[in-house]
Structure formats: structure tokens, C-alpha cells
Amino acid sequence: MSAREEILGRVREALGAEPAAVQPSALAEYRTESGLDEDALVELLVDRLEDYKARVEVVPRGNVAAAVRARLEGKEFAVPEGFPAEWLDPSLDERAVRDSREAPLAVVRLDGLDAVVTSSAVSIAETGTIVLDGSPDQGRRAISLVPDHHVCVVPVETIVGIVPEGFARLDTTRPLTLISGPSATSDIELERVEGVHGPRTLDVIIAR
């Protein structure tokens, strides 16, 4: 008998004739909506991100390019091919290194860059979580990982209040990365220290 057949057989045997448990959705009495308005969402997200020691800035939509420029001035950085052109000041073009699934940068090249700029798919205010889903404006997972400095634009309409609202907007078949602050560890005496293997600096620009 193959391992597959044997294990499935053992599982069936172990469960015996007991009926399958009811679908728990009927029991779901946890919150599925936060009911927060835009101002409250932005305020909460900023608070939570700052708690993780991320740098956060809220700017009018028209000022995103300037904010991005301020963060990346003088740096050589990766940018996914689908990153909105209007958010990238032409003065940065010279040091912007394009990446896409079709023409990916080598890992060593990424390691040599100072930073990366991406957009984001969904942000969850209550937990200070930004989700990247690999869309063209966010790029391959490697680009937001290897460079030590991540500048991330969060369009205000992508902010939700709580975790269930976040997952409701996500397609789990896409490669998802949930980011809550810069990389950190609690492995030494269970005290949190920011900055390990992932980007040590996380800049968030919330575009209203």
C-alpha cells in the first residue's frame, strides 16, 4: 500500500463513524467589520505602524512623488515595472532599477541596491499590517526583501480596519506577504529588537 493510501486509511479508521463537525461559520461571532471611517482608519494605521518603529507619512495624492523622492534621494533602488509613473519623480529615473517577473534582477544585484519602492494591495489598520500580493505595482517578493530599505506606498482606499476585512479583499492564490513593521526578533530574552534579515527600515507613505 502506498504511504498516501495507508495514511488516509489510518485517518478514516481513527475517525470511525463519527459525523463531521458542523461548519463553524455559524459560530463566527467575532468581529468582521470595524465600522471605522477613513480618518479613524488612517489614524489607527499610523499609530500601529509607528509602534513597530516604521516611519509613516500621510500625504495628499498629488504629493506622493515628492514624498517618495524625499525618501529615495541619492539612493539606488529597485522599482517594480508596474509602479505608477506619477509616483516616481523623473529626477529619480537615473537611479531607478526596473524589475519584473519577465526580466528579474539577480539576487546579488538586489543585494547591491540601497532601497526598493513598491505600492501595496491591502493594509489592516488594527494590526498595522501591509499586504503585498505580487501585482505589477508591487513586484516579485524578492525585491521588497533583499534591499535594506523599503519605501511602501499605501493608497488610502486600500486600508481596512481589521483582519477579516483584510482577508476578504485578498486572493490567497497570489503570493502574499504580510508585513507589520521592519523585520524584528524576540529571540533574545523575548524582548523585541527591530532589524534582522528583512529590510531594517520601513517607510510608509499613505496617499490620501
Binding site: 500601529r48 519584473s100 494590526t127 498595522g128 505580487g134 516579485r140 482577508f167 506577504t177 523585520s183 524584528a184
Partner: peptide, 29 residues
């Protein structure tokens, strides 16, 4: 589970990184 786990384990609202992948994504990973 993404609410239960981080708060129970490291005592954070959310852990810094969670990765979800589904089979192979061409050109990524």
C-alpha cells in the same frame, strides 16, 4: 488564526512577516 497566533505567541498584534504561497508562481520565488 492570523489574529490568534501572533498575539498568543510573541505577544504582538501581528508578527512582522507572514508568507503565503500557492504552488508555483511563474517568475516569482
Amino acid at each position: 488564526f492570523m489574529q490568534l497566533l501572533p498575539r498568543s505567541s510573541t505577544g504582538e498584534r501581528m508578527n512582522p512577516y507572514t508568507s503565503l504561497w500557492t504552488g508555483v508562481t511563474p517568475g516569482d520565488g
